[in-house]
Amino acid sequence: MARKVRVLIAKPGLDGHDRGAKVVANALKDAGMEIIYTGLHQTPEMIAESAVQEDVDIVGLSILSGAHMTMFPRIMELMKEKGAEHILIFGGGIIPAEDMDKLEEIGVARIFGPGTDTGDIVTFIRERFPEE
């Protein structure tokens, strides 16, 4: 059985706008990936634990509430504590360009802004995790 790419899609924080998260989840599924969807209102602890238990390759976080500078670093810290720093993290949402830069500096693999083509996200993941 060939290796499958496993992706966790989650919405940290309190905002409920899940259109983007679900569109991306659908597109990745249609691209043949296995999507673990944990849904709305997730705490960093929930996300990190789910990512570890599910042994995903990559975690996608969608935030539109402006809490990104709190959420991303906290989740990365927790993953490290759990011995899962190898899991990549990407994100999307309403995130100003300078914050995108800061997040990429601390190790977030990529932030996709509004208007992103889902094909770009598929390519981004495939490049890092080719199916064998």
Binding site: L14, L64, G66, A67, T70
Partner: peptide, 10 residues
């Protein structure tokens, strides 16, 4: 605790 990072943001 759940308000962390979200106060006054949006």
């Amino acid at each position: 605790k759940r308000s962390e990072g979200e106060v006054g943001r949006c």
